[in-house]
């Protein structure tokens, strides 16, 4: 029995190591000095250093990691929250009134299946007319569209999960639409909102394509900004600095995911109906 358990753990550890090897390698490389990277490819660091992180976190004339972080943060926040504002009323109407359930819903959800690159040229032209190029709001708007299908799907499921009797009971209790939505439907959708926000934020944070096309300077997000660090002084790639900037760029969504993990799953409606 003991052996059985030990074997199982060994297999788990081995698989986890293989799956996470790129992450581990990146993290370890970030701790190596340039000279060590060139002579020591192993996973053991001889003389660990934070030098690469210092390089990344120091503001230079050309590179400002805080600026990229802030651009990503604001654009991803818009990109996560805006679709919720749009999709929630839509979700309620689709579920409770049936409007758009047959055509609009599958249409929006299937937007997800289209490669985003086909929107690139028209979006660029539209943005240039609307003065949205290289703005955080502009980037946020595009990210909102990227997130809309998943957001709508999650919120439609959340509303559909609320027993109809609860809404009927609220009506019988004298509640009109605003109070029904504000006091019954919205609180019951809270777990779905949290889930949607976390997924939306992470997706928006990791988005690269539109960040590259639609921004040049003022609104460059972290994903694009990180690539600027790869070659700081001409010629070859600075692997240590590149690894460090990737670690920094990956931290915010990672932390968000870990903090919110417990709230993502779980339903609010237990105890509403029956026993």
């Amino acid at each position: 029995m003991k052996l059985h358990l030990a074997l199982r753990w060994i297999v788990f550890a081995f698989v986890a190591l293989i799956m996470n090897f790129p992450v581990i390698a990146t993290f370890i490389t970030a701790l190596k000095s340039p000279s060590e990277i060139s002579r020591n490819p192993s996973l053991v660091v001889d003389s660990p250093t934070l030098e690469n992180f210092v390089t990344v976190l120091t503001v230079s004339d050309r590179l400002n990691v805080y600026h990229y972080l802030w651009n990503s943060f604001s654009a991803a926040t818009i990109g996560a929250i805006l679709p919720m504002l749009v999709a929630f009323p839509m979700a309620w109407v689709m579920v409770r009134r049936g409007y758009g359930r047959a055509l609009l819903f599958p249409l929006i959800v299937n937007l997800r299946a289209l490669p985003l690159i086909i929107f690139a040229v028209p979006l660029y032209l539209m943005f240039s007319v609307a003065y949205l190029l290289d703005t955080r709001i502009g980037l946020g708007l595009v990210l909102a569209i990227v997130n809309l299908p998943l957001t709508l799907m999650l919120l439609v499921n959340a509303v559909a999960e609320i027993p109809i009797e609860l809404e009927e009971a609220a009506h019988m209790d004298g509640a009109r639409l605003p109070r029904l939505i504000g006091r019954v439907v919205l609180p019951l959708c809270r777990p779905a909102f949290i889930t949607t926000f976390v997924f939306g934020f992470i997706t928006a944070w990791n988005e690269f394509l539109f960040g590259l096309i639609l921004t040049t300077q003022r609104a460059v997000p972290m994903t694009v900004g990180a690539s600027f660090f790869f070659a700081t002084s001409g010629g070859g790639v600075q692997w240590g600095v590149a690894a460090a900037v990737m670690v920094v760029a990956a931290l915010p969504p990672l932390i968000l995911g870990l903090v919110m993990y417990r709230r993502i799953s779980g339903s609010m409606v237990s105890g509403a109906v029956k026993g």
């Binding site: 609860l166 009927e168 009971a169 609220a170 209790d173 004298g174 019954v184 019951l188 509403a272």
Partner: peptide
Amino acid sequence: PYDRHLSMVFQSYALYPHLSVRQNIAF
């Protein structure tokens, strides 16, 4: 329904799960 001033007790109870008993009754 909200203009008819009737009360209804549902087969499935239909209590608001996010509210306490007190808030349910006071709703």
